[in-house]
Amino acid sequence: MQEQAPNRCRIVLIAPPPGDGDGARIEAALSAGDVASLIVPAHDGDEAAFQARAERLARLAQGHGVACVVAGEPRIAARVGADGIHIEGSKAELAEAVRKYQNRMMVGCGGAKNRDDALELGETQPDYIFFGRFGYDVKPAPHPRNLALGAWWSQMIEIPCIVMAGADIASVRTVAETGAEFVALGAAVFDAGADPAQMVAEANRLLDAHAPLLEDG
């Protein structure tokens, strides 16, 4: 557990699909340096299996002082004591989740494909907006559209944003240079052959060296 969160772009981990040893790989990543949160997507699993996994990963993340955000299923997030919910849906669905759950956990959103989408979702006052798609970080560099949206949003809007990095760990620097508060890492940390602890440590080293300081407040 970090003593104090650094005042620069921080890491958000995207949990990989379920598989042998995935819990150990996630724990290794969580133990390797500063991580702000862990987002747990459903990955097309059935509800019971997803809830069991979400509960296990929530306890694991929270044990390391890391917030756990469950994607797509507000009821499961509430049942397992997660710290947040990630919504990919309409403005109305997001507004309903904000109304029902934001008093007890954070409610974030994704799915914006352009500025108009982002502004529409932002009107509901989520706790963050995510630019990118889970599982689509297959190229070394982040998607240019996500970088452009993150740079625009971070300059114009007070709600924090998360920008999806690429499959190359060095891409955290590119994301940080947009001014985004958070960089999401999935493939770069959890792909086969990657050492999750080494990748998180390297990402933090790059962010410490190159990420601009964020304005307070």
Score class of each variant (00 low, 15 high):
D46W: 02
R10V: 08
R8C: 11
L207H: 05
A36F: 14
N103D: 14
R8K: 13
F130S: 01
S154Y: 00
A54M: 08
A28F: 14
A5Q: 07
P126Q: 09
H86S: 10
G63I: 12
D116T: 13
A148T: 03
E158D: 07
V69Q: 10
P196C: 05
Q51R: 03
A82D: 00
G89Y: 07
E88V: 04
R59C: 07
P126A: 01
L147F: 04
R25F: 09
L147I: 15
R56I: 08
P196A: 08
G33H: 13
Q51M: 12
S31G: 10
N204E: 05
H143G: 11
P6F: 01
Q2D: 06
P142H: 09
P144I: 00
V40P: 12
A118M: 02
A48V: 14
C68Q: 10
V189N: 11
V80Q: 08
P142A: 10
M105R: 01
E88I: 04
A77D: 01
E177W: 13
G89N: 02
N103C: 12
I87F: 13
Q2M: 06
M105A: 02
G217A: 10
P142S: 03
D191H: 08
L94F: 15
L94N: 03
E120D: 07
E177V: 00
A180D: 03
A194E: 06
D137S: 02
F182K: 03
Q125C: 02
C68K: 12
A203M: 02
E55P: 06
D34R: 10
A24D: 15
S37A: 14
L213A: 09
G23H: 15
V70I: 15
H210A: 11
R145I: 07
V138P: 01
L214W: 14
N204G: 04
D191K: 15
V138R: 14
R145S: 09
E177H: 04
G108V: 11
V183I: 02
A29D: 06
R99I: 08
A77T: 01
N7D: 13
G110T: 06
H143W: 06
E158G: 08
D168A: 15
G63R: 02
E202G: 00
K91M: 00
N204H: 04
A95H: 08
R8G: 11
P140V: 08
N114Y: 05
E177F: 00
